[in-house]
């Protein structure tokens, strides 16, 4: 408590010391109220300015958070970017599957072809080879689709990184949902590691050595 406030309370104390209860008038009560109000004024002023500073800092933080959330464009990511990327990947799967089926159909047709008539056999082989060449054109389009998905992932990475930096985000341990936790537990328990990025971690010859 400040020295000024102590002086005010001393004034109240002196006032009460010099007054007897039966002598107290309305003017005395008003004077006492005025002294009391003055004594509390500085306290409230001090408190107000501290609280005001705190509130201004909080308001500034909220304002910057709003700016960063706006820059994140979470709704755009959720409603536009991610669905579009999903559609691109789905189209890639369909195109590769269709091309693979076409190529396998050609291979099966060639395998089943009757080679006893050379001219007809040659014509069939040439026809099937042309279909295989055409089917392989999927690679160009799927390459472009995958580039679009990579671009989306980079954009999300940039926005999320900026947001995390702006709010000084700290990583929580564990998983964000029960479903994620269950997926990770299943992967760990059933050794679902998936294909390795740079080819098989254990080569076929290394595997063979384990099955003598």
């Amino acid at each position: 408590m400040s020295r000024t406030n102590t002086e005010h309370f001393t004034a109240i104390y002196d006032f009460l010391q010099n007054k007897r209860a039966d002598e107290t008038t309305l003017a005395d009560v008003l004077e006492l109220a005025e002294i009391s109000a003055r004594s509390m004024q500085r306290f409230y002023e001090d408190m107000d300015s501290a609280v005001y500073r705190e509130l201004r800092e909080i308001a500034g933080y909220i304002e910057s958070l709003k700016r960063e959330i706006g820059a994140l464009k979470a709704n755009e990511i959720k409603t536009s970017r991610i669905p579009a990327a999903g559609q691109e990947l789905s189209a890639v799967c369909k195109a590769t599957e269709a091309a693979t089926n076409t190529i396998m159909e050609c291979a099966e047709a060639v395998m089943a072809a009757d080679s006893r008539e050379p001219a007809a056999y040659k014509a069939l082989i040439e026809e099937q080879m042309m279909i295989i060449f055409e089917a392989c054109s999927f690679q160009d389009i799927t390459g472009q689709r995958i580039s679009k998905v990579v671009e989306t992932l980079q954009l999300i990475d940039e926005r999320v990184s900026r947001f995390a930096k702006a709010i000084a985000a700290r990583e929580n341990s564990g998983h964000s949902s029960e479903a994620e936790s269950a997926r990770e537990e299943r992967k760990r328990r059933l050794l679902l590691n998936g294909p390795q990025l740079n080819g098989p971690e254990t080569s076929q010859s290394e595997v063979d050595a384990m099955f003598p």
């Binding site: 050794l191 590691n193 998936g194 294909p195 390795q196 971690e201 254990t202 290394e206």
Partner: peptide, 8 residues
């Protein structure tokens, strides 16, 4: 495609 040694 599971080629980790632990899988084998």
């Amino acid at each position: 495609a599971e080629s980790k040694t632990e899988n084998v």
